[in-house]
Design a protein around this nucleic acid. Structure first.
Lengths: 250, 250
DNA sequence: ACGCACCTAATGTACGGACATTATCCGGCC
DNA sequence: GGCCGGATAATGTCCGTACATTAGGTGCGT
């Protein structure tokens, strides 16, 4: 299985094979221990650890003393970005969170379809929700997904659960990346009424394209009250981390 | 120097000491080789490599076969975040970029000083600029820095250069991290006039605290035209990357 | 003075072993 | 049946060694 005369390092060959086995779902039950892998591949523990180091750096597995390595739970390994953090941040503050589902149907939308790489007439599941934190309106959230994969969502109840949870439960889809764009816009009169805002107000508009294996599967359009929430980014040498959090003041 | 009976691992003690020596500027000339460190600390090469591994992961040093480890060039190791990207993105579009310096003086500001961890009466260098892309106003930028380190900036010309460049040139300071917060606000009448905006307009407010070795050294408050620019974040398994870029539309 | 070949130095890879520390499981005890 | 404690297993830490591979300098020859 391993080629000791190849130019690529042994640990990298082990890493590649582990990735393949992960993709094949061989480790859904349990991840093998270091010594298991030493025996399976016939390499030293040092080499196995070098390969595992990478998987840990990528957040795919977690390890600790005395415990076998484990696959990182899906919720943790998928940083869904600002939007996901927004609602978890609200929960962390102890605010009850719920949604009012305003629309849940199938429709076509040429503009959105083209952003998802579909034909303009492609049927899309459309979900429009007003999100509340406690009793106060927090955001107006619109999401479009291809109907061929997301149709089961039409039976889901979104008042208390997150779209990503339902996607996993009903469609067995776990989005693994995407692109988000945040900008400032003025609230329209309809949005002001829904979000309980004064006559003129600024909103954060978060547009998100969620991807699975590089293919766009979700387009999302979320208006967040700019007076109560902010996007924060921590910058360090490793790169930028993104989160949306309630503003400490106001 | 090292405490072999301590609870913290040896490699971590080595790492901590290396960080201290880096902060002291001991390695400005050359970074020591692995075997030098083995001798200096009296630990095995494996332990030294474990410490160096972290420094490499943080982008502080680079290493390659046959070559001693080197300090990563400053330009590469310091992703300055959304704001820095904003102005480089403008340049990438071929738009001439310049600033009108509206204020450059020393003053005290209790609120800003407290965010920088200084006494309220501490003197601060204050720089206020209107940034233009081509002929159009782009952003209103305010920056505060402790006067004791940033005083040389008072002689700098900011019409065509970036604050970070001047910080490096005049004060030999290279910010290495920080925190940014982006939110949506309404433009005040004065801001509307300066930025040439309609009667009601939404702005992106970027507040940034720049740090050197974890100590805040810069507070920045930038209002960006929300109708022309957006914050974009690319999300993948490795984390989130942040950038501010001109909007493709409008 | 320039270029090529070689040598040296340094990191990357890989092996081995030993002990420390901790999570987990199992069994005994109350 | 539930709680506590020891045995077990597994990873974390640390040491040593050897060889491969490459960067960079040295020195020779032209």
């Amino acid at each position: 299985m391993l080629d000791r005369s190849a130019a690529v390092p042994l640990w990298q060959q082990v890493l590649t094979d582990l990735r393949q086995r992960l993709a094949d779902g061989q480790f859904t039950a349990a991840f093998p221990g270091e010594l298991d892998l030493v025996e399976q591949y016939g390499v030293s523990r040092h080499t196995v650890r070098e390969a595992l180091r990478r998987l840990r750096a990528e957040g795919i597995v977690t390890a600790a003393r005395g415990r076998r390595p484990r696959l990182t739970p899906a919720e943790v390994e998928q940083p869904l970005g600002a939007l996901a953090s927004l609602f978890t941040a609200v929960e962390a503050r102890g605010l009850e969170q719920r949604s009012i589902v305003r629309r849940l149907d199938v429709r076509a939308d040429g503009v959105v379809a083209s952003r998802l790489g579909l034909e303009e007439s492609a049927p899309l599941v459309y979900l429009e929700r007003l999100r509340l934190a406690g009793d106060e309106p927090l955001a107006l959230d619109r999401a479009w997904l291809p109907a061929d994969v997301a149709a089961p969502l039409l039976d889901a109840d979104f008042t208390h659960t997150a779209l990503y949870d339902e996607l996993a439960t009903y469609c067995d889809i776990r989005l693994s990346g995407g692109q988000e764009q945040v900008r400032a816009v003025l609230a329209t009169s309809g949005e002001r009424r829904l979000l309980n805002l004064p006559p003129t107000a600024a909103l954060l508009l978060v547009e998100r394209t969620g991807c699975l294996n590089g293919r766009p599967l979700e387009f999302r359009h979320t208006l967040v009250r700019g007076d109560r929430f902010a996007v924060t980014a921590s910058l360090d040498a490793r790169g930028a981390g993104l989160a949306v959090s309630p503003r400490p003041t106001g």
